[in-house]
């Protein structure tokens, strides 16, 4: 008999639990989604904000830039996130999607820059390449090195095959998989950038140009090492013949064991990335849903914390975790916009 009672009791508890679960949607915590590149910066701000104000610590989900914007643009209401982070600017199509789902007023804030570095163990020979050489070393299809007017599968085995000034050792580069924002940015900045510099690429590739410029080789020279940048860092330390592609903050954290390749004559330094002189630099952003201001407590205060000089300035605490500050004028302008909560018109994206 005892067993029956226990069984009945547990079913009852389960039923009660399901009854409690009817949506309790009022929330007082800011919900933030978006880019995994902005995540390490936004979490630091969120935690400080939680500790230093009376508001609860915002909840941050790392969904990737595209995933974040999709959730963000799904609608207005407490079940949708309030802020999304992005490691690229919102696309016009995403803006349209937001508009059609009723997310009319969106405030855009540019928070700083991040560089993509190509690094190796500091015991290895360092690399000094330009974008064209990088493209030739890593693309799936390249113009026939023996001349002729056709594209061939990448024949280069060693860096020195690409250009005699480069080290005479096999091309082995570890980088992020296609799901990663870092990979998107690398393809856009390095591969497509290098592709443009191949003089006759238009006639060689024709209308397949995008495919040719974006294709990364799959013959083992480029190794997909997973989303975890720490893994690439660890492998580089033990393997001096390989290079790795990851975000600047990982280089800074491991500056004792790693060195960065020079690209187009520029080392990835704070100044070079901030001024866009370093070719593999990108901007980081976040977007605020204006309709939620006043509904979810603390949004203006969070944005204020993020855009204060002691946070995102060159001496602010985000600089300590590897964010590269915007130039002073841009910071002032962005902070002013953010404070006034000036919504986007959509024209700035075109």
């Amino acid at each position: 008999m005892k067993t029956i009672k226990t069984a009945v009791a547990s079913v009852a508890v389960a039923g009660a639990l399901a009854a409690v679960s009817t949506p309790t949607l009022a929330r007082d915590t800011i919900n933030i989604v978006g880019s995994s590149t902005v995540y390490p910066f936004a979490t630091v701000v969120a935690e400080r904000f939680g500790r230093n104000t009376k508001f609860p610590t915002p909840k941050l989900e790392s969904t990737g830039s595209g995933g974040g914007l999709k959730l963000f643009c799904a609608g207005v209401g407490t079940e949708h996130p309030d802020i999304t982070n992005a490691s690229r600017r919102m696309k016009p199509s995403e803006f349209e999607r937001c508009q059609s789902n009723g997310v009319k007023d969106i405030v855009e804030v540019k928070i700083g820059s991040d560089g993509i570095v190509i690094a190796s163990s500091n015991k290895a020979e360092n690399l000094d390449v330009n974008l064209k050489e990088l493209y030739l070393a890593l693309a799936k299809q390249v113009p026939d090195p023996d001349g002729g007017d056709k594209l061939v599968a990448n024949p280069y085995k060693n860096w020195s095959d690409v250009d005699s000034s480069l080290p005479n050792k096999p091309i082995r580069v570890m980088g992020p998989p296609p799901t990663s924002g870092t990979r998107d940015a690398f393809v856009e900045l390095a591969m497509e950038g290098g592709c443009e510099e191949v003089a006759n690429i238009e006639e060689l590739a024709g209308d397949k140009k995008d495919e040719v410029c974006q294709g990364i080789r799959e013959d083992g020279a480029f190794i997909e090492a997973g989303e975890n940048d720490n893994l690439i860092v660890q492998k580089l330390a033990s393997d001096t013949s390989a290079y790795g592609i990851f975000g600047y903050s990982f280089l800074e954290e491991n500056s004792g064991t790693l060195q960065a390749a020079t690209i187009n004559g520029e080392q990835p330094t704070q100044d070079a990335i901030s001024s866009d002189a370093y070719p593999l630099a990108r901007s980081l952003w976040f977007y605020v849903k204006k309709a939620h201001v006043g509904v979810i407590p603390g949004i203006p205060e969070y944005v204020g914390e993020f855009t204060s000089e002691s946070t995102w300035g060159p001496n602010g605490y985000l600089a300590d975790v590897g964010l590269i500050a915007l130039p002073r004028d841009a910071r002032v302008q962005q902070a002013k916009n953010a404070k006034a909560m000036t919504p986007m018109t959509g024209d700035e994206l075109k």
Binding site: S21, T43, G50, P56, T57, K59, L60
Partner: peptide
């Protein structure tokens, strides 16, 4: 379902993040 998130506060119920 969004449980991979940065959450500082210790949850106190079944509907806390």
């Amino acid at each position: 379902i969004g449980m991979v998130a940065f959450i500082v506060d210790v949850p106190s119920g079944f509907v806390d993040a």
